[in-house]
Design a protein around this nucleic acid. Structure first.
Lengths: 288, 288
DNA sequence: TCTTTTATGCTCACTATGAGTATAAAAGAA
DNA sequence: TTCTTTTATACTCATAGTGAGCATAAAAGA
């Protein structure tokens, strides 16, 4: 059609790994910055190139990887040359997040972890304040009700991005930085993180990617806690076991886990033959 | 990091609308070409700009729009300047596809329409031939079994892209063009179409976007046929009605549809108050 | 031996699903 | 008129999955 404008391309990836209590992201330069590189990592496929590049820069073996979202960075206004950022989601199996430059995702979005009562009260406050903010505007009120599960609507794990954007619009999360440019960058980065968490929560429901975050052999409790960490809510133990075992997703290794107190748990491994589809959803029950 | 390479950006959109028997895409230049424009449609947000642009160029009101995928076009090898294509999915409510430059999606992917016995036999042939092709390679065989629902695995509507890519790799869909460049472009375009159909089939399950394709008032049969056209499989009528009505997704308009033969059906309209989440899946039963 | 701690197994009510069948309301043909 | 065709709408029934609770088993340490 008309003449094409030239752009700069930035590839970046959210590398997620599993801590004991929460999913973590691997960052570079002591936090705040996501691993990102220029387009030149072209391996014919952008993704494969970025995959190798990210493994080298984080020092972790990266399993699953997928494209997240592409957006324009509207921080640099006057510049003629637009910046396009293509973001990816990557999963790494890591032994100890403390050894890496890793940060808990729930440090960025405490309200997304609905397991502690402390966060529950934080969320209650947000619910209250954002309702005040949206009160006069019915379109806003609809979005708020849907995102925060207000009236009799259910809470949807996956609406991480909607919630973050609403809280930002309402000024309830730190716009602290007086510098607009810095604030917008912060906003953009968290948007990516929110998108990543959203996508991850959606995907663990109907694909077996959780296993890319777990060690080879794991107990059913570890698997359950992985799901709880990712979804941010507690699950009903007996039902979770039933669900997993009923689907022939895993098989016993024969060994047991002797490290924990109490009766030692059987160790299981993922059965990739069943890899085609799984269904870890369902058993999402708040602890009574 | 290192110096950034400059790229050309192409924005393109798959505009989907509903024909009587199948979903259609709106094309420009008498088929084969998707509406696409240069990046300059920057409205601060890529999407909003493209939205308006697509409405002007197709002459249809576009409802829902979302980003699909970003990929590099590997047709132009020698060129230093890489081309990045950002694709979008758009839904248009159109009265008569015949009036527009529209093409049935199932012209491109006949095997995705599992309602006619003719296509069923085509699929059987493909199943046979692609099994021969994958026979010796266990990794291939796994992908094939999962994509085509081989042994006792279920057929998954949403694996449109996987199926297309496998058929292409196996040489079962037209690589006809002797010119490699043309063939690759064709391949890339169909890949986008497959991605679009994939995404659409996934989304109609848990969001109410079908209603963006239907007229204001519709009968339950029209709604069912819309779902059937999109998913490519027949549904059980009584169960479909039960599902829809049970969820309070729609409300009666009071009018009836007198145009069709037989007992006139009640007309319904979408209840956006229930817009937050729906659940049109489930009732996906092959006609016995 | 008793207590603590975790693993593992079982029950039960209820809802959603897959499938089939029956009745109701219109239009047109004999 | 009555009968047939066509579609809409309603109802039944068995079964599987879900949400929730309780009970037992196996280890370690007091």
């Amino acid at each position: 059609m008309t003449q094409k404008q030239l752009c700069e391309i930035d590839l970046l990836t959210v590398v997620i790994t599993l801590g004991p209590l929460a999913p973590h992201i691997l960052t570079v330069n002591q936090g705040q910055e996501l691993p990102s590189g220029p387009l030149t990592i072209s391996h014919r496929s952008l993704q494969k190139g970025l995959h190798q590049w990210a493994e080298r820069h984080t020092g972790c073996a990266i399993g699953h990887m997928e494209q997240l979202y592409t957006f324009t960075d509207h921080t640099q206004k006057a510049s003629q040359r637009q910046l396009i950022r293509i973001s990816y989601l990557a999963l790494a199996r890591v032994l100890d997040p403390a050894l890496h430059d890793a940060h808990s995702l729930y440090d960025y979005f405490p309200w997304e972890d609905r397991r502690s009562s402390h966060n529950a009260s934080l969320l209650e406050r947000f619910r209250h304040e954002i309702t005040l903010w949206a009160r006069s505007n019915s379109e806003r009120m609809g979005r708020v009700a849907s995102a925060f599960g207000l009236h009799d609507l259910p809470w949807d794990d996956e609406k991480v991005l909607d919630r973050y954007e609403l809280l930002w619009e309402a000024g309830l999360v730190s716009r602290a930085s007086s510098d607009t440019v810095t604030a917008t960058t912060l906003y953009d980065n968290r948007r990516i993180l929110a998108t990543a968490l959203s996508r991850l929560r959606a995907k663990i429901r109907y694909t077996p990617i959780v296993f890319d975050l777990l060690p080879e052999a794991f107990t059913l409790l570890q698997l359950q806690q992985a799901m709880e960490n990712l979804s941010g809510r507690p699950m009903h133990k007996p039902n979770f076991r039933r669900l997993v075992l009923h689907q022939n997703l895993v098989e016993e290794t024969g060994a047991r886990d002797a490290t924990a107190p109490g009766r030692p748990a059987k160790l299981y491994r993922f059965r990739p033959s069943a890899a085609t589809s799984c269904y870890l959803s369902g058993a999402m029950l708040p602890l009574s």
